Amino acid sequence: MSNSLVEVDSRPLKQPGQDVPFLAQVNTPSQRQGQADVASALRIVRLLSVITGLLFTMGPTPPVRAEPSMPMAQPHAANLARMRAESLNGGLTSYRAAGCMYETGARACLVSSTSESFTFRFRGGAPGWEQQKPPKPSLETTVVVSKDGTRILAVPYNGPIR
């Protein structure tokens, strides 16, 4: 690293028999880049120190519960069951299945899962029934779908709420 000296005023740097006037150091572009790199590194170290301190003061994180895995065919089976109920009850212009049937895999509406089938039981009614206070479903449907999620095996019940 070399320093370049520059005169601050307009007088020559040194005349015979005179003291050297006040001189200022000027950084070259490579020196300025090096200083910027050091400053950036210091900011990063400070930031990491703050983050580490925050993590230690927050304490351990609570354990996370993993949900049981869902068979790959379950979301397709749920969609198939919901669509069957929609077609049986007049289509989407006059019927909406419960919200649980619109969630991936319809876990809340799944009443049985065997080696042969999925069985879904859910309520439904006119569009907007779930937004009413209190919700007023008018129909209940039970649909059994094949384990691979490709075929409706049975519709044991589709009628008034029991």
Rank of each mutant, 00 (worst) to 15 (best):
T61M: 14
A106P: 10
M72V: 15
V111T: 11
K133V: 08
S112H: 09
T142R: 02
M58K: 10
Y102P: 12
T104G: 12
P71N: 15
V50N: 04
G53A: 07
G91Q: 08
V45Q: 12
C100A: 15
C109E: 09
P134S: 02
V143K: 00
G128H: 02
T141G: 01
A154N: 09
T93P: 12
P71M: 13
F56Q: 09
G91H: 07
P137R: 00
R107T: 12
T119I: 03
A154W: 05
S94T: 11
S40H: 11
M70G: 05
C100T: 13
G91Y: 06
E130N: 03
G91A: 10
R123V: 01
G124Q: 00
H76D: 07
M58H: 08
C100H: 11
P127G: 03
A98C: 12
P62I: 05
T93Q: 14
C109K: 06
S49G: 12
E67S: 15
K136F: 03
A85N: 03
A36T: 12
R46L: 15
S94E: 14
R82G: 04
P62G: 08
N79I: 09
S112T: 11
K136H: 07
W129Q: 01
N89L: 04
S146M: 01
A39I: 09
L42C: 12
E103H: 15
T61Q: 14
T52F: 08
F118Q: 00
L110K: 05
S117I: 05
L47G: 09
